[in-house]
Every structure is written in structure tokens, then in C-alpha cells.
């Protein structure tokens, strides 16, 4: 009896994972297609005009972009990873990855309705600031360990 239950649960887990990946499939495919297009069309020197290697400015821009976008973190890894190859600094990419999941402008109305307006606003605002802090902290530690 327990074996049947376990088998059913495993089957459910596999289906759930497959569904989750399938749900992300169009957006992942679109992201890779767009990245490929951007990489071919835009020269690497263009990024140096936006990202000036100033740790505060770069992490702020990265956080801002990550906060606007929303979705599965797997998309952010692919997007950020490919941008890193294009020459965008690790600090901007880190801030982007962190804010992608921790700041939720799209989900803000739902969060405010259920958990409270003040809480939702403060949580997202502090998450925005902390995305910059995490990016700087990570790069500093990485630099020290290297």
C-alpha cells in the first residue's frame, strides 16, 4: 500500500516538474532567441557606454532592470549568463539576478492585498536596496577569495 502511494507521489512529482519546465519553455526559448539576436546585432562596445564599471551605478542599473522583469529564475540565469559573455560586468549581472526574484513589481498588488500595503512596499523597497548590497558584497568576497 505504501509502495503504491510512493509510486503515485513520485509520478506526481515527475509530472509537476515536467509541467513546470514546460510552462517555462516558451519564455526560455524566447529569451535565448532574443539574446542570440542582440548578441549578433549589438556590438560589445555598446555595453561599455551603459555600464561604466562604476560599482554603484552598474549595480543600480542591474537591479532596476531585474526589478521590472519577472518570471522563473532559470530565465534570469540564462539571460544574465549570456549578457556576462557579452561583456557586462559581474556586479550588474548579480544585481539583476537577485532583484529578478526578490523584487516583485508585477506581484506587488497581490502582495499588498494579502500581506498589507505598508509591508509590501517596505519589503520591495528594502529588497531593491539589498539587491545592490548583495551584488557589491558578492563581488567583494569573490575578489578577496581569488
Amino acid at each position: 500500500m505504501k509502495n503504491i502511494k510512493d509510486k503515485n507521489l513520485m509520478k506526481k512529482s515527475i509530472i509537476k516538474s515536467a509541467k513546470s519546465l514546460w510552462k517555462s519553455f516558451p519564455i526560455i526559448l524566447s529569451t535565448i532567441l532574443l539574446i542570440s539576436l542582440i548578441s549578433t546585432l549589438i556590438p560589445k562596445t555598446f555595453y561599455t557606454t551603459i555600464f561604466t564599471k562604476n560599482i554603484f551605478l552598474d549595480s543600480f542599473i542591474g537591479t532596476l532592470i531585474g526589478s521590472i522583469f519577472a518570471g522563473n529564475p532559470i530565465t534570469s540565469y540564462i539571460f544574465a549568463g549570456e549578457l556576462l559573455k557579452q561583456g557586462i560586468g559581474l556586479i550588474a549581472v548579480t544585481a539583476f539576478i537577485v532583484s529578478w526574484v526578490t523584487v516583485g513589481i508585477v506581484q506587488l498588488p497581490a502582495e499588498a492585498t494579502i500581506l498589507g500595503k505598508k509591508f509590501a512596499l517596505l519589503r520591495n523597497l528594502t529588497a531593491f536596496i539589498f539587491a545592490i548590497v548583495v551584488a557589491i558584497l558578492t563581488i567583494l568576497i569573490l575578489g578577496v577569495i581569488k
Partner: peptide, 14 residues
């Protein structure tokens, strides 16, 4: 994309 060391540090910092 980023390496094990980076992910561990990032996770710890978070």
C-alpha cells in the same frame, strides 16, 4: 554560467 564558487558566495550573502 557563473561557477560553483560564485553561486555559493551569492547564496551565503543572500
Amino acid at each position: 554560467y557563473f561557477g560553483l564558487k560564485y553561486i555559493l558566495i551569492l547564496s551565503g550573502a543572500m
